[in-house]
Design a protein around this nucleic acid. Structure first.
Length: 886
RNA sequence: GGGAUCAUAGCUCAGCUGGGAUGAGCGUCCGCUUGACGUGCGGGAGGUCACAGGUUCGAACCCUGUUGGUCCCACCA
């Protein structure tokens, strides 16, 4: 059985081999099985254009941890994978590529373009999936989906038609955010505001008399966008503004355009801001649009889709927007209408994809009416039907749902779900239908043209939790796996995606899409900056995996981080986690070496040494704690406990304690009990660790365990009250305490300290004997405190040696070295002070009526126990001090 | 402008519903070629838990305010 194992753990090779094994054995695959409870996660589908980045790595790791945990707990787990067509992101990339080839998208034509897009999908769609596999993701790849596959298309059309029929989807001319570079409308969520230095141009318009002659008076106002004046159709003042009350109803002459526009009164104007006068451009400003509607003002669009001035801009037609701005300002100045220019910092809306300044334009677009749809989504979170982790995300969530506006879903793009609406060429009737209509239902004409627009990419993602399970078909999967259990995603797409899935779930399925949303933060670089291409500070997860292994990366991404918080990425952290993998590797190597060709037999209860019971008891409580933490999504806390247990308790203490028994071959039963405990405690710890570090745990598990195929389908350990050994725990803890004390006492001596606790001690050198004798009492008192036995050294190494034997544990502790009296005294006095303080505190609490009457019984018992413990410790310390002083 | 969130060891962060700062990783210092592991072992230094008040028997944790950082939303022309 014992193999030649390398001294250091090298994940390369091992990881791919194990992943292939899991695939071959179909461990990731889930089938409907009514006898088992399902546990489902749908993956946030990565973009087909995407390359795996740290954000994915974190997202996938968290999901894989939850899925592996639940799988081991016996749930029928489905991790539903897939990819997103990412309409605009992909289209931008393909268009770029075409441009590089010297091909213009428009001249290529829609059909050819889509051919290219599908080819692209074929080429790159698989890339990200393969990268996800490198992380160890246990997705059910047999069920992989794509947001534009046949089923998802069907779902999209179904939803569109249903919502259109219900009146939730409508087409209307509304102010939208227009990206002049991508040439499409975008939703509010896609607009990013950016602070930019700009100017305030103070301009004045001449006031006209009733007979249209200039009165010589002017209205002065400020604007950040002078070019929009070409589309002004009014100037507004506050109705109660005494300064301008008399002008309401009068007309102004719009310079450059020579158009007569009225002065209107509207509450929207802030009297305090600027001059209290606002120019109104209903065609190019969302607020002005509303004002325009209230006052029935004409709406003039002065811009083309590419943000050049159109024919409504008079002589400025054809100019680019900023060139026009310059020309207009110059001309106004010439006319003496420019009062002044001020510097001004303001927020400018930009497109989150391309960074271009967004232009508010009035366009005929498709919208989803949100006011009714959002209600169940609000209610679900408010009433706890859907839980957000961490809870603080609720505020973010409600901030959006409470201020929701209709969702612009049409995009002037080609790559995406074509809007299932047709227009009759003859009568203009709109036909919305699941399939292409043969003829116009109104006039019977057979010439119908489909709407050229496609849908916002998030429209299909919103349906993801049920479309991937087969909806609109009533599949058995849908009935069994829906609603899903948890959605894991970054807080940055709560508005884009999470909210939209929730209201879509309620609307289409009549049921929430998931029970819990588990949010994580962003992975930043070591300086706290967002990883980005432009900064070039991105760290490639695949490189990390190649160098340190997926396990180390995964552990790095989940430790020391609370849900929803951003984290910084440090190579040092990966390194230390790689070291942890190596540590476990070596611990198991040690066990394998000692097991040799035999598997230890289950020892009788009586054969277990106190040390065995101690570690069993510790492991048992670890199981309880870790399971509880994981159920509360405290993954970082959970894995920290496993880490500490394995490294500190198991490796640094238990293995060391057990060594004498393993080497003393004469006591076979004791040796067997030690080996058995070593092996089985490690296996339990490996199981707890497996969700976090799937590869190294599997590799070791398979070496240690002969009768099971894989740790990933083994049973999750369960807390067992019978494995609690409080007495042994307390005993060993005090032994540890004693050993530490002894080690401390030895520092500063000119005798080399021993590395290991079990080292047999060479006695004090002859000339130091006196010193040793002086300290014998101390050693004895420490020993007796820990129920140790002081006896002659049995190692046979030194004649004058004395060692301590811990009964049953068979642990030899070197005591032969000398104790520095001064130092020890100092230490004890410090200890005494600490205890005094503690005793005072506990006494104070316990004698306080308010505490004893109000505090929970558990707490009081705990404090009483502390009081006892401290009192006893105090006695000992006092005794030791007295002894030392002798 | 509204809101959220953070401020704990040199650095990065944990710290559950108020009850010993029990902290972790990295760094740093001292000592260890020891038969699982130097990707290791043992030990040490280092914190007035941002500041000021308040509630409480008791506050890193609750409340108020101040300062500083980050983020989200809004977009007053």
């Amino acid at each position: 059985m014992s193999r030649e194992l390398a001294k250091t753990y090298d994940p390369s090779g091992i990881e791919d081999r194990l992943y292939q094994k899991w695939l071959d054995k179909k461990y990731f695959h889930a089938e409907v099985d009514e006898s088992k409870k399902p546990f489902t996660i749908v993956i946030p589908p990565p973009n087909i254009t995407g390359q795996l980045h740290m954000g994915h790595a974190l997202d996938e790791t968290l999901q894989d941890i939850l899925i592996r945990f639940k799988r081991m707990q016996g749930y029928n787990t489905l991790w539903q994978p897939g990819t997103d067509h990412a309409s605009i992101a992909t289209e931008v990339k393909i268009t770029e590529k075409l441009r590089e080839e010297g091909i213009d998208k428009e001249s290529l034509g829609r059909e050819k373009f889509l051919e290219r897009a599908w080819a692209w999908k074929k080429e790159y769609g698989g890339r990200i999936v393969n990268q996800l596999k490198k992380l160890g993701s246990s997705c059910d790849w047999d069920r992989e989906r794509f947001t534009m596959d046949e089923g998802c298309n069907k779902a999209v059309n179904e939803v569109f038609v249903k919502m259109y029929e219900k009146g939730y989807i409508y087409k209307g001319a509304r102010m939208v955010n227009w990206c002049p570079v991508c040439n499409t409308s975008i939703s509010d969520a896609e607009v990013e505001y950016e602070e930019q230095a700009g100017h305030f141009w103070h301009i004045k318009y001449p006031i006209l008399n009733d007979d249209d002659t200039e009165s010589g008076e002017y209205l002065v106002f400020a604007t950040t966008r002078p070019e929009t004046m070409l589309g002004d159709t009014a100037v507004a003042v506050h109705p109660e503004d005494e300064r301008y009350k008399h002008l309401v109803g009068k007309n102004l002459m719009l310079p450059l355009m020579n158009r007569k526009i009225p002065v209107v009164a509207d509450e929207y104007v802030d009297r305090e801001f600027g001059t209290g006068v606002v120019k109104i451009t209903p065609g190019h400003d969302p607020n002005d649009f509303e004002v325009g509607k209230r006052h029935d003002l004409p709406l003039i669009n002065i811009m083309n889709d590419d943000a050049t001035i159109n024919e409504n801009g008079g002589k400025f037609a054809g100019m680019e927007r900023y060139a026009a701005r310059k020309a207009i300002v110059a001309e106004l100045e010439q006319m003496g209408l420019l009062v002044k220019i001020e510097d001004h910092v303001h927020n400018v809306g930009t497109h989150d994809r391309c960074g271009a300044t967004v232009e508010p334009l009035v366009k005929a677009q498709w919208f989803v009416k949100m006011d009714e749809l959002i209600k169940p989504a609000q209610k679900a979170v408010r009433e706890g039907e859907i839980r957000l982790v961490p809870e603080s995300m609720q505020k973010n969530y409600f901030n959006w749902t409470d201020n929701i506006r209709d969702w612009c879903i049409s995009r002037q793009l080609w790559w995406g779900h074509r809007i299932p609406a047709w227009y009759c060429d003859d009568c203009g009737e709109i036909v919305v239908s699941r399939t292409a209509p043969e003829k116009c239902p109104k006039c019977g004409a057979t010439h119908l043209t489909q709407d050229p627009d496609t849908l916002d990419t998030w429209f299909s993602s919103a349906l993801w939790p049920f479309s991937t399970l087969g909806w609109p078909e009533q599949t058995k999967e849908l009935k069994y796996f829906y609603p899903t259990d948890v959605l894991v995603t970054g807080y940055d797409i709560i508005f884009f995606w999470v909210i939209r899935m929730i209201f879509s779930g309620y609307e289409q399925m009549g049921e929430k899409p998931f029970k819990t949303v588990f949010f994580h933060g962003l992975v930043r670089d070591s300086q706290g900056r967002k990883m980005s291409k432009s900064l070039g500070n991105g760290i490639d997860p695949l490189e990390i995996i190649a160098k340190y292994g997926a396990d180390a990366l995964r552990l790095t991404l989940v430790t020391g981080n609370a849900p929803g918080n951003d984290m910084r990425f440090y190579y040092e952290k990966v390194e230390s986690n790689r070291n942890f993998a190596n540590k476990i590797w070596n611990a198991s190597r040690f066990i394998l070496m000692n097991m040799g060709d035999e598997q230890p037999a289950r020892p009788a209860e009586s054969e277990l040494a106190p040390a065995d019971r101690w570690i069993i008891s510790k492991a048992n409580r670890l199981v309880k704690d870790v399971t509880e933490n994981m159920e509360k999504y405290e993954l970082g806390v959970a894995v920290q406990k496993i880490y500490d247990f394995i490294w500190d308790e198991f490796c640094d203490w238990y293995i060391e304690m057990v060594k004498p028994r393993l080497y003393a071959k004469e006591d076979a039963a004791s040796r067997n009990a030690a080996l058995y405990t070593l092996k089985n405690v490690l296996i339990d710890a490996l199981k707890l660790l497996h969700p976090y570090m799937p590869f190294v745990t599997e590799e070791i598990f398979c070496s240690l365990q002969e009768d099971e195929d894989s740790i990933m389908v083994s049973a999750w350990p369960v807390y067992d009250g019978a494995k609690d050994y409080p007495a042994e725990e307390a005993a060993v803890e005090s032994i540890k305490e004693a050993i530490r004390g002894i080690r401390n006492a030895r520092t500063g001596m000119d005798v080399p300290p021993s590395k290991k606790a079990h080292v047999y001690v060479v006695s004090a050198l002859a000339e130091k004997r006196a010193s040793f004798a002086e300290n014998a009492d101390f050693i004895k008192s420490l020993a007796s405190a820990s129920e140790l036995i002081v006896q002659e050294d049995r190692s046979g190494i030194g004649e004058d040696a004395v060692s301590v034997v811990i009964p049953d544990v068979n642990l030899y502790i070197p005591l032969g070295e000398l104790v520095d009296i001064e130092k020890e005294l100092e230490r004890l006095q410090k200890e005494e002070q600490r205890l005094e303080k503690e005793l005072a505190r506990v006494n104070g609490m316990l004698s306080n009526e308010k505490f004893t009457s109000k505090a929970p019984a558990e707490k009081i018992a705990e404090e009483r126990a502390k009081l006892d413990k401290y009192s006893r410790m105090m006695e000992q310390v006092k005794e030791q001090i007295a002894n030392l002083r002798k």
